[in-house]
Design a protein around this nucleic acid. Structure first.
Lengths: 105, 105
DNA sequence: CTGTATCCTAGCCGATACTG
DNA sequence: CAGTATCGGCTAGGATACAG
């Protein structure tokens, strides 16, 4: 699981299905090229699921797979341990906003 | 916490103080240069403690710090999740050997 | 035994432009 | 909207030799 942005991506996906463009907005510093790359790798690793809707304009949504969801336990442990990986992140992800009270404790 | 071998190193240190050479034997595919590098970073991050004994020949031992020990929770979660990082590892580390029964369950 | 010092390479990552 | 294509820089990590 290398990949500079993967943990951030997974954290964004916690709130549910997210479209490509929204992901890119949520993580502005990532280029679409790299975002695509890392999403593909996450999909190949079985962590996320890619769903294409036959619409115009195109619409693609990404979900956590069951395996990806089960990885939340790791993220939770990391959070307890103080590892937030937010140094890279210009804006707070929804996950972190939710967990803020926990951080303070 | 980037570093290809760091999780492996931490897992080796679970069993207690380990010398440089033993670490290098336990993880044969790592070069001493990279091992040194990653150990230094782990030390700087406060995860491990380096102890030098004024002996000849030189003897250096590495321990998990309290912070490093607290990281075991993450490793445990990773284990549950199936992430062993053993694809890289030619031989089973002591941690994995101990946890084998758990793996089967 | 425990590292350094060099040199070198693969591949990650960023920027930009372009496509169905 | 959701990506590809292309180019290019940087650096983590590998090989090897050497040092205290």
């Amino acid at each position: 699981m290398n990949g500079k942005w993967k943990i951030l991506i997974l954290k964004e996906l916690i709130r549910g299905p997210v479209r490509f463009g929204l992901l890119n907005k949520a993580i502005p510093l990532i280029s679409s090229k790299v975002l695509t790359q890392q999403l593909k790798e996450l999909e190949k690793d079985g962590l996320i699921i890619r769903t294409v809707y036959a619409e115009v304009p195109a619409r693609v949504e990404y979900n956590l797979s069951e395996m990806g969801t089960s990885m939340l336990a790791i993220l939770t442990e990391m959070r307890k341990w103080g590892l937030h990986n937010d140094s890279l992140h210009p804006v707070k992800c929804s996950y972190c906003q939710q967990c803020e009270p926990l951080n303070k404790a």
